[in-house]
């Protein structure tokens, strides 16, 4: 027996019409999203994914096509009904978009005020939510006093205030560092498990999709390139766009080049070269890799003093070239015997 998906996006098209031209941002998008799943929408910047997420809650009204959430066809609703539906859809953003003149608690109360809850109910709910996102001690703090990760936690608490069935995340981790990103993703996953809330994640980062999404859709140039379970799409990308995304992001992390050279040198910076990226230039100019085995520099009055131990390439010609290159740059070079074993 087939159940109807929680969210159905049907033949969605969005055009932006300005005075002298029409830009088609999205066309022919069809997607079904199951209740309780974490659904990633990934694409390069400018692919139309941000427009797509805004079409899901009708912040952008599609030019044609429709979005059905639960039993409600959004294209058939009037403004007031639409606002009511939106009260039950949470949304978080790349730039957090907290009210800067309200403290954390009042930020979380804001959607509850809109939905007509009393102040007392709002405060109670805010305390519950702050407990969930781990920021109970920041209740009275203002957003300007919080770090990026904390702001996004507040934004998540705010988005969950009305107990929504759906949470939209628009590049929610793109302004955060990798560690914070992981903790925010873990929080989202937790929320998904605990409350069964459906989460749609818009991102340009493969790692985000890999980490928490069950399903993924790839948007390329305003069209749906591919969609399916994360394992299927990522292990066997079929379209050009999917391949570009999947393989491009892997080349940097896969199979480190093994250094086999046995010659090592110690270089000593005498303080003159702290502004010139010597090692980087050396690698680029000689087109040969070195392995930094040890490095210790001290910055004394703006000059770098210290030393570094480099493992040279196996190729003797290249190794000699590197030594000469460094000597020409007035870097003190000393060859080390038996620094690396076997």
């Amino acid at each position: 027996m087939e159940t109807t998906p929680f969210i159905q996006i049907k033949d969605l098209q969005k055009e932006f019409i300005s005075q002298n031209n029409t830009v088609t941002a999205l066309s022919g998008i069809n997607l079904n999203i199951d209740k309780g799943s974490i659904f990633g929408i990934i694409g390069m910047s400018g692919a139309g994914k941000s427009t797509l997420v805004r079409c899901i809650n009708f912040l952008e009204r599609p030019t044609s096509g429709t979005v059905i959430i639960g039993d409600k066809d959004l294209s058939k609703l009037n403004d007031r009904e639409l606002r009511h539906v939106r009260q039950n859809i949470g949304m978080i953003f790349q730039q957090f978009n907290l009210l800067m003149q309200r403290n954390v608690e009042d930020n979380i109360c804001f959607p509850l005020e809109i939905a007509g809850y009393s102040k007392k109910e709002g405060r109670k709910r805010a305390a519950e939510l702050l407990e969930i996102v781990g920021l109970i001690d920041k209740k009275k703090a203002y957003p300007s006093q919080l770090s990026g990760g904390q702001k996004q936690r507040v934004a998540i608490a705010r988005a969950l205030a009305t107990n929504p069935q759906l949470l939209l995340c628009d590049e929610a981790t793109s302004a955060l560092d990798p560690t914070t990103t992981r903790s925010i993703l873990a929080l989202l996953k937790d929320i998904n498990k605990q409350f069964g809330i459906t989460i749609i994640i818009i991102t340009h980062e493969m790692s985000v999709v890999e980490e928490i999404c069950d399903y993924v859709a790839i948007i390329d140039d305003g069209k749906l390139a591919e969609s399916g379970s994360v394992e299927d799409v990522f292990s066997n990308p079929k379209t050009e766009a999917a391949k570009r995304l999947v393989y491009h992001s892997n080349t940097t992390s896969n199979t480190p080049i093994e250094m086999k050279g046995k010659r090592c040198i110690r270089i000593v910076f005498d303080g003159k070269s702290s502004f010139e990226p010597i090692i980087a230039n050396m690698v680029l100019d000689n087109k040969a890799l070195v392995n930094i085995l040890y490095a210790d520099t001290k910055d004394i009055k703006g000059k770098a003093y210290g030393h570094m131990v480099l493992q040279l390439p196996e190729n003797e010609v290249q190794a000699d070239k590197i030594i000469n290159y460094l000597r020409n740059k007035n870097v003190n070079v000393e060859e080390l015997i038996d620094y690396v074993g076997n």
Binding site: N57, R86, Q87, M91, L99, M100, P111, A115, T162, L168
Partner: peptide, 28 residues
Amino acid sequence: DHGVIEAAQSMGASLFTIIFKVLIPEAR
């Protein structure tokens, strides 16, 4: 910030609410 206004819209805020609870207080 337009983003804050958009956030309020995403919560289903009416024009009136956005003016009195977002625009004016944020610009105070």
